[in-house]
Design a binder for these strands. Structure first.
Length: 873
RNA sequence: GCGGACGUGGUGAAAUGGUAGACACAAGGGACUUAAAAUCCCUUUCGGGUAACCGAGUGUGGGUUCGAGUCCCACCGUCCGCACCA
């Protein structure tokens, strides 16, 4: 028997056995398997060509869950696919002259091989890529259903425009306001685009969050804030000084109608119709708007840009104060997409308004004060002189009929008055905007619509689906190849037959990922879903992915599920019953003396005088050890999982990923950590393979009695089993790993009085089998090899999770801490079921306790059974 | 700018409001070995003390509580998202 565990031969061996046995193919008989279903899904990867450590972490977590649930008797669905459309394929096409299709599919092939080498318990028979016409054709069919259901609309919206490359840029392609390739300042342009009406579902998406009890609280909160339901008012400000129409009024949305008496100006977005109309014969305003348009379209860019305003010369009449008018500005910080694209500003009680007022010398009128400062004129003066607006709760002042009311009551009163005057109304506004899904790109799902001059926009007839992407395209110039393709877009109108034009925009790739989890339940169906299969499997019981998807992807998927429910494809509203967001994988960074990043494999680290010192492996030049950061190509601090798997095996990588760091927190990859994980694989193997002669035969009857050491080992095994099962249930793999170490230490330290006794041999077998079974979901190859070595013919993968003996989980006596005045002074070992009085007496009898009490009268004794005694003296 | 999270030894961390530092990594010492690797054993929060022991300690400052790493308030720092990256 070899004492060394060789992952290189063992891992492929078991992968082959699992595949041949079909262990991970989901039994999906229509009649049901008799087992409860469990659908575990990790966010599917973008096929960049190589897996990275983040993938290893994500898929290891999901795999451990899948294997654990399978062992616990669930019928598990654990599929895999590819989020295969998107910009990187087009960038590769431009840079390397490869076709996006060939590039993507060869990447998928490479990554599939890599993923398989991790030993994932995946049903590969369900695999698909979103760029398969079989998939995106069904997506087009879905879109037509949504169109019919009134969930789709078409309207104008802004894009980033690169005036040199003549192409639309993604936000990430805009760097400091300039195009990433051309370097030219980006402009905003208006295009007519397709939208999904997610905002119609705003309330439903908000309410649904309450039901997602197995989602992280932070994600639910982020979504809630993103949807941003706010109650407020529309206020109509009559406009003066506008030529022409007499009934001109500016409609603003505000969440603070209670501060109307503190209004000092109104402001509209540069894209507000009023601003656009005025700009037509006001060149200065036109220039100002163009200046605003040089900021990108992202909210971040707009909100961090310096606040700029342009006085239109118009004035708005105050709804409450007779004769008072407010100047109307065009301001770059007002978003056209939020509310009505126009605001009234109360600088005293809104920070942005405050900053703007200070910059342009506009009045600051405090109208809300903290409750105890209402009579204090100095408070208002300090506010005006200071740098910060007061946005807290308080009472209204200087506000006529609102005076003395708190914020909530004042809002209500102000709305009532507005409604009575016909100058406004209470309303609910959402921050959530409709989802623009048009992309002016080739490598995406074609939008199945035809534009006809006579008939308008006409859906592609279903019989003609899928609208397949043409292969003969070139990427030698920027812009959308579909648009300049010589023939593809020319079609006959399905309605009138006259020459028409295909829509050349493609879908946002978020559309692809908004329903793939449903498609996995019946990946070959000739309709988007097989409803029966979808109903059987959905919702996903456990979804796992990075926090970076907390809002967009997860919100879109929730919306899409509702839309698919409404169009008859699904019966559920929520796609993911359980969500887990795992942390990132980080690594130290290294730089040479010239500040260039150096990859870890070129760095040698030594310890000199207790300090870690790095030098270059080749040249010996000194290297500076930098901060720990998310693995990224730009900082060269990546570790290739393939190298790790080749060196140590997949189980070591998996074990490392699950050890130490809680899965929802970032983990730092380190060579020492990997070495440590690898050493444990060897240790476990030695433990199992070296124990042969000291084990009871497999299946031997349990002895009637156990010696003290054997009993202690049994306790350790059952306690570890129960705790690890609990940890797996709660995805606390790092704690499960600690249980395994504890049990391993107990086994290693097992020194029975009579090692040849049946009880010792039986207990040792039990402990070894238990540790192997706990390890199974985490290091499946090693566990299988150990399981086989222990004499089992059925693979561990097909073996049920053992049940812990409850009688072995509790100890007879407990150690409890004894505090005096909240300070720990001693501890006490006492019978588990000792009553309160016994515990108190024992605690008071301790020398150290007596010393600490120091003769003072005992006022109170708190006894928490099994935990602590606190004596208050 | 807005929204969200996180912060505990040299390091990763553990701890239903109840003994802070389980478990591991690193480091130091020792055993085994001709030697090395591997393995095994011991020490390891900080300060004082040979020791028993004493004092301090969970980013900072307050608060609630018999008792706070955990709950509340303010601040500091780091990270994530911001609608066309996936």
């Amino acid at each position: 028997m070899s004492t060394r565990y060789n992952a290189r031969t063992v891992e492929p061996k078991w992968q082959k056995i699992w595949e041949e046995r079909g262990d991970f193919l989901t039994r999906d008989l229509a009649g049901g398997s008799g087992k409860p279903k469990y659908y575990v899904l990790e966010m599917f990867p973008y096929p960049s060509g190589r897996i990275h450590m983040g993938h290893v972490r994500n898929y290891t977590i999901g795999d451990a869950i899948a294997r654990f649930r399978r062992a616990r008797g669930y019928n598990v669905l654990h599929p895999m696919g590819w989020d295969a459309f998107g910009m990187p394929a087009e960038n590769a096409a431009m840079e390397k002259s490869v076709h996006p299709k060939g590039w993507t599919y060869s990447n998928i092939a490479a990554m599939r091989t890599q993923l398989k080498s991790i030993g994932l318990a995946i049903d590969w028979s369900r695999e698909f890529a979103t760029c398969d016409p079989e998939y995106y054709g069904q997506e087009q069919a879905l879109f037509l259903d949504l169109l019919e259901a009134g969930i789709v609309t078409r309207r104008k919206s802004m894009v980033n425009w690169d005036p040199v490359d003549n192409t639309v840029l993604a936000n990430e392609q805009v760097i400091d306001g300039c195009g990433w390739r051309s370097g030219a300042p980006v402009e905003r342009r208006e295009l007519t685009q397709w939208f999904l009406k997610i905002s119609d579902f705003a309330d439903d998406l908000l309410d649904g969050l309450e039901t997602l009890t197995r989602w992280p609280e932070k994600v639910r909160l982020m979504q809630k804030n993103w949807i941003g339901r706010s109650e407020g008012a529309r206020v109509f400000f009559p406009i003066e000084g506008m030529r022409g129409e007499a009934d001109n009024r500016l409609e603003v949305f505000t969440t603070r109608p209670d501060t109307l008496f503190g209004a000092s100006f109104c402001a509209v977005s540069p894209h507000h119709p009023l601003a656009q109309a005025l700009a037509k014969d006001n060149p200065a305003l036109h220039d100002f708007i163009r200046k605003c348009d040089r900021i990108g379209t992202s909210e971040e860019a707009i909100e961090t840009a310096e606040k700029m305003g342009f006085d239109t010369g118009l004035t708005a009449r105050h709804p409450f104060i007779e004769g008072k008018t407010l100047p109307v500005y065009v301001a770059n910080f007002v978003l056209m997409e939020y509310g009505t694209g126009a605001i009234f500003a109360c600088p005293a009680h809104d920070q942005r308004d405050f900053d703007f007022a200070k910059k342009y010398g506009l009045p600051i009128i405090p109208v809300v004060t903290p409750k105890d400062r209402a009579e204090d004129p100095a408070w208002g003066a300090a506010l005006i002189a200071g740098t910060e607006a007061f946005t807290g709760d308080g009472v209204a002042v200087n506000s006529e009929f609102l005076n003395g009311l708190d914020v909530t009551a004042a809002k209500r009163a102000a709305i009532g008055k507005l409604e009575a005057l016909g100058l406004g109304e209470g309303t609910i506004n959402y921050r959530l905007r409709d989802w623009g899904i048009s992309r002016q790109r080739y490598w995406g799902c074609p939008i199945p619509v035809i534009h006809c001059e006579a008939c308008g926009t006409v859906p592609v007839p279903r019989a003609q689906l899928p609208v397949v992407l043409p292969d003969d395209v070139t990427f030698d110039q920027p812009g959308n190849p579909l648009d300049r393709h010589p023939t593809w877009k020319n079609v006959a109108c399905p309605e009138c037959g006259s020459p028409a034009r295909r829509e050349t925009d493609t879908f946002d790739t978020f559309v692809d990922s908004s329903w793939y989890f449903a498609r996995f339940t019946a990946p070959a169906a000739t309709t988007p879903t097989d409803k029966e299969a979808a109903d059987r499997w959905l919702p996903v019981d456990q979804y796992i992915g990075g926090v970076e998807h907390a809002i967009l992807h997860l919100l879109y998927a929730r919306f899409f599920t509702r839309a698919m429910h409404r169009t008859g494809h699904l019966s559920v509203d929520e796609p993911f019953a359980g969500l887990f967001t795992q942390g990132m994988v980080n690594h130290e960074t290294y730089r040479d003396e010239d500040g260039r990043w150096v990859p870890p494999e070129e760095v040698v680290i030594e310890t000199v005088d207790g300090k870690r010192v790095a030098k270059h492996a080749g040249t010996g030049a000194p290297i500076r050890i930098g901060s720990i950061e998310k693995m990224s190509k730009s900082k060269k601090n990546t570790i290739d999982p393939e190298d790790i798997i080749a060196k140590y095996g997949a189980d070591t990588a998996r074990w490392f990923m699950l050890s130490d760091s809680p899965p929802d927190r970032d983990v730092q990859w380190s060579d020492q950590g990997a070495e440590g994980a690898w050493r444990f694989t060897q240790r476990l193997w030695r433990m199992v393979s070296g124990a042969r002669g000291q084990l009871a035969p497999g299946g031997a009857a349990m002895p009637a009695a156990f010696g003290e050491e054997a009993m202690a080992l049994r306790r350790a095994a059952h306690q570890a089993l129960a705790a690890a099962g609990d940890d797996f249930d709660n995805l606390r793999f790092n704690r499960a790993v600690a249980r395994v170490y504890e049990l391993a230490n107990a086994i290693a330290g097992f020194a029975p009085a009579n090692p040849e006794g049946d009880d010792a041999k039986w207990a040792l077998r039990e402990a070894l089998e238990t540790i192997v079974q706990i390890v199974g979901p985490m290091m499946p190859h090693l566990a299988e090899e150990c399981w086989e070595t222990l004499g089992h013919e059925t693979p561990l993968t097909a073996t049920e999770w053992p049940v812990a003996d409850k009688a072995l989980l509790v100890e007879d006596s407990v150690t409890i801490a004894v505090q005096v005045n909240g300070k720990r002074r001693d501890e006490l070992t006492i019978a588990r079921d000792a009553d309160r009085e016994t515990v108190e007496r024992a605690a008071l009898a301790l020398d150290k306790v007596e010393k600490a009490i120091d003769g003072k009268p005992v006022r109170k004794i708190i006894v928490v059974p099994g935990k602590i005694v606190n004596i208050v003296a």
